[in-house]
Simulated assay, not measured.
Amino acid sequence: MTTPSAPNTPLRIGLLGTGPWARNTQAPALAGHPGVRLSGVWGRRPEAAEELAAAHGTKAYSAEAGVDELFAASDAVAFALPPDIQAPLAVRAAAAGCHLLMDKPIATTVAGAREVAGAAERAGVASVVFCTLRFAPETARWIGEQAALDGWFTARAQWLGALYAPEAASEYAASPWRREKGGLWDVGPHVLSVLIPVLGEVTRVTAAPGPSDTTHLVLRHTSGASSTVTLGLGAPVAAAGVEIELRGEHGVVTLPEWGDAVGAFHGAVDALTEAVRTGVAHPCDVRFGLRLTELLAEAEARAGAETRADAGPPPAPGV
């Protein structure tokens, strides 16, 4: 449990990462938050760190020693890094006494996620995992309203991106980890962060591969409800979109539109600040991030088994 901080004291938050996500979302949200002081920017590329830091009036840090210097100058750190670079740095940050504002997924291995959760628990630091829909004001309110109701029967969710369509020309398409792990790991956390608070913990996962990087999931929840989920980044532009629908005793409800990512990240900063101030853990913390990683790893393994089954047995030796 975290030690409550002094009221009205700006939280010094350092930013790790200088890519498009950091440039477009985290940096402007942190620099513009009234309860936060952006204490610095660290990047693996010194010139990128210098450029992003200068754009927001803060100090640039780079190279190995710079990470620890940023930790020392910060109360908390926000991450805009690939998950398997983020995870070991988060362990170091927690050991240095920094609260954690992590991107999803917190790691792409269960072992890596467990190390982060363990480090945060040992250090007693607060943590928040930035699942966009949990913190965008419009969708956060909707999730809370549906979670307060009983009697949900089933849910259907689709999150299809067109990141790799030639006409999309997205700067996020260049991400190696995203291309390797696909929509399951990139947008799966967003969908699960909606379904679990409303329908309950996932007790059973079935998964099958679809076209391109698409993965189809069937989930069973502790409430007794089931949900079906389709996730992918390689859809045609005309097929892309996000839908989450709940059906139950109260009828049919659908996820509302939400604002921009900067506003949602602002909400995540608010959540971390509140957890630091009160010492009360947020539901979407690194322990929840660990659970998401466990579910995604299980789904990946099950979908992989289906792919191998479709391919048939390997050829006999010498054939």
Rank of each mutant, 00 (worst) to 15 (best):
S223H: 06
T228D: 14
P197I: 13
T203G: 12
V205T: 13
V202K: 01
H216D: 12
I196V: 15
D213A: 11
P197Y: 12
A225H: 11
P209T: 05
V198M: 07
T206K: 06
L233C: 08
H221M: 08
T228K: 00
T206N: 12
S226K: 02
A225T: 08
A207N: 02
A208T: 14
G210F: 04
V198D: 07
T214R: 09
H216N: 12
R220L: 09
L233W: 02
L199W: 14
A207E: 02
R220G: 14
A207H: 02
S226Q: 11
A225I: 08
S212K: 06
T230N: 01
R204F: 10
H221D: 11
P197C: 09
A208C: 04
R220K: 06
G224M: 04
L233A: 03
L233P: 10
A207T: 03
G200K: 06
T230S: 13
S223A: 08
T206S: 14
P209R: 01
T228M: 10
S212P: 01
L231T: 03
L219A: 11
P209A: 13
T228L: 05
G210T: 05
G232P: 10
P209N: 05
H221K: 04
G200P: 10
S212W: 00
L199V: 13
H221N: 09
L217E: 07
G224V: 07
R220D: 15
V202T: 11
G234E: 05
D213R: 02
L219H: 05
T228W: 06
E201I: 03
T206E: 15
L217V: 06
L217H: 01
T203I: 09
V229W: 00
S227W: 05
V205A: 13
P197F: 09
D213T: 12
T230V: 15
G232R: 00
L233K: 01
L231R: 00
T228V: 15
T203S: 13
G234W: 00
T215C: 13
L219S: 09
L231H: 02
S223T: 15
R204P: 00
L217T: 05
S212H: 07
H216R: 07
S227R: 01
A225F: 07
D213Y: 03
A208F: 01
P209Q: 01
R220N: 14
G210S: 08
R220P: 00
L231G: 07
V198H: 09
P211Y: 02
G224Y: 05
T214V: 15
T222W: 00
V218C: 07
T214I: 07
G210L: 04
S212R: 11
G234D: 12
V198E: 07
V229A: 10
A208K: 01
R204D: 15
V205D: 12
T206H: 10
V202F: 05
L231S: 05
S226T: 15
G224A: 06
G232Y: 00
T222M: 00
L217Q: 05
E201N: 09
T214N: 03
A225V: 11
L199I: 13
L231P: 09
I196K: 04
H216L: 14
L233M: 11
G232V: 04
D213E: 08
T222V: 13
I196L: 11
